[in-house]
Structure formats: C-alpha cells, structure tokens
C-alpha cells in the first residue's frame, strides 16, 4: 500500500510531462525550436514566439537573484552567528513567515502599494543618477514594470535563501569556528575563512532553488509586470515572463494554436523547473538542502 502511494506520486510526475507535451504538440509541430527565439506574440494573427517572455523571465529572475542572494546570506549570517538567542527565536520565524505570504496577496500589495511608490520615488531617482545606462530608462506612468516584478520576486526569494543558508551555517562545526577565533580571526574572517568555504556548495544549491522559484512564479509577477509584448532595454518598461504570460493569457485564448503555444511555454517552464532542481541536487553534494523548503 505504501509502495502504491509512492507509485502514484511518480506516476503523477510522468503524467504531468505527458499532458503538457500533448497539449503543446500543435504549437511544437508548427513552430519547432524557432519558437524559443521568435519574439512576436500576436494571438489574433496566429503569431507566437517565446523570445519576449524568455527575456522577461531571465531579466526579472536575474534582478531578483542579484538582490536576494547577498541579502539572504547576510540574514542567514545574522541569524546563525550574530543574533542573541532570544532575538534569533523571533526573527528566524518572522523571516520564514515572509515565505508563507500567498503570492496573490503579495501581488495585490505590489500592484496597489508598491508599483505607485516605485513609479513615483524609486524609478525617477535611479533614472536621474544612472540614466546613462540603458536599463534605467525613462519611467512609465504605471509602475507596472520588469523592475517592480523583480522587487516582488526578491521578496519571495530572500526568505528561501535566508532560511536554507541559516540551516547550513548552523551545521558548521564549532571547533572550526572557535579554532579560527583562537587564532585571532575577527568575525568576518571566521565567516570568510571557515563558515562560507565549508558550506559553499550548500549555499549555492539554496540559491539555485531560490532561482527556480523566481523563474516559475506566475501570479504575483502577472499582477505587477504590466504584460508587455515587446523587449525593452529599460527595466522600467512593462514586460512578461513565461509564467505570467500563461496566467494572463489562458483565460482569454482565441485559438487552438494559442492554447497549444501556452502549453509550449509551460513545457519550457517544466524543463527549467526540473533542470534547476537537478542542478541544486547535484551541487548540494552532502547537504540535503531541500528539506528546509517544507517548513
């Protein structure tokens, strides 16, 4: 009976892949691999390509990881090495609580509170100072942009990287840390010389798991990214990701080919999801990083 339950779980995963591929077959046979680089998306004219959404997915995820990785690791260091016991017992769960907030609520807050704030205060400032770099272009009127989506994704990824890394840092043997301290190392030197090198592969795996989350998030991103159809160099322009395009288009499909193309996007997303997971497992080595995700 237990084995049966296990078989059911394995079967589900196989069935997921099968369903998505059959759903996408029409679009796959029509467009082939060129779908991946074609940037047009005009459902009414039967023109479909994943170029724009792949760009949006890459840019938002890259931005989220650039912000979330150092923040998450810094929080983990605070929780594992700096915080007094009492504070640790409060702040740790609070950070994990951030991961428990449903993405639709984060998105609601993003579209109504964060986007106007970003549009009025953050984007003009960045444009004034760094305007010579194309990614900090002229702000739009709504604040619905790749930039806002990147910020929302950062909020989602930070608790993942932070809590997974904290668990790893706590596994560093005390002898090693105290040995370094006894040799006169300052706290930063202990971190740089002992804590980070002994947990590096696990932290990298935690980051990849966070990246997987950022690449696959649909709802919150769909709410704040503005659903743009063109690639812009500027982060402040609207765009779309693989997942947000599926979430926003699927309720209003105009043709069978449209549905099939959305399934094609989902197949790409599935492959990305599987690959990030396998990479995380491969580089985690002796660390069992994923166990932290269930809390």
């Amino acid at each position: 009976m237990c084995a049966l339950a296990g078989a059911l779980a394995v079967l589900t995963l196989v069935e997921v892949a099968y369903q998505l591929i059959t759903g996408a077959s029409l679009s796959v046979s029509r467009f082939g691999p060129a779908f991946l680089v074609h940037t047009g998306w005009k459902p009414n004219f039967g023109v479909f390509g994943a170029g724009t959404v792949l760009y949006g997915t890459a840019v938002t995820a890259l931005m989220a990881m650039t912000l979330a990785t150092p923040l998450g690791i810094a929080i983990a260091l605070y929780l594992s090495m700096l915080a007094p016991r009492g504070i640790r017992a409060v702040v740790g769960p609070l950070v994990e609580m951030l991961a428990a907030i449903p993405s639709v609520i984060l998105g609601l807050w993003g579209v109504i509170v964060l986007a106007p704030f970003v549009q009025q205060h953050v984007e003009p400032g960045l444009h004034r100072v760094f305007g010579f770099i194309p990614i900090f272009g002229e702000p739009q009127t709504t604040g619905l942009s790749l930039f806002t989506a990147g910020l929302i994704l950062t909020i989602m990824v930070v608790p993942i990287v932070a809590s997974l890394s904290r668990d790893l840092f706590l596994t560093v043997p005390r002898d090693l840390k105290e040995g370094a301290e006894a040799l006169g190392a300052t706290r930063w030197e202990v971190i740089r010389g002992v804590v980070l090198p002994t947990t590096a592969s696990g932290v990298a795996a935690a980051t990849v798991l966070g990246l997987g989350r950022a690449l696959g998030e649909a709802i919150a991103v769909a709410q704040v990214i503005g659903d743009g159809n063109v690639i812009h160099a500027s982060l402040f322009a609207p765009g779309a990701t693989l997942a947000s395009r599926i979430a926003l288009d699927f309720q209003f499909v105009v043709s069978k080919l449209h549905t099939a193309s959305l399934f094609y996007l989902a197949v790409i997303l599935l492959v990305i999801g599987l690959v990030t997971n396998l990479i995380a497992q491969a580089i985690a080595g002796r660390f069992d990083v994923q166990r932290g995700l269930v809390r």
Binding site: Q19, F263, A266
Partner: peptide, 20 residues
C-alpha cells in the same frame, strides 16, 4: 520524483490539471 514535484512551478500544475 517528490523533489522534482516540489520544484514544479504551480502554474504548470494548473495547466496539467486543466489538460487532465
């Protein structure tokens, strides 16, 4: 399989059940 399932983007799960 369980690990990979945990890494499935939820929108993919939605499309799967739609198809099924």
């Amino acid at each position: 399989a369980l690990d990979l399932m945990q890494g499935l983007p939820t929108v993919v799960v939605g499309l799967f059940v739609f198809g099924l």
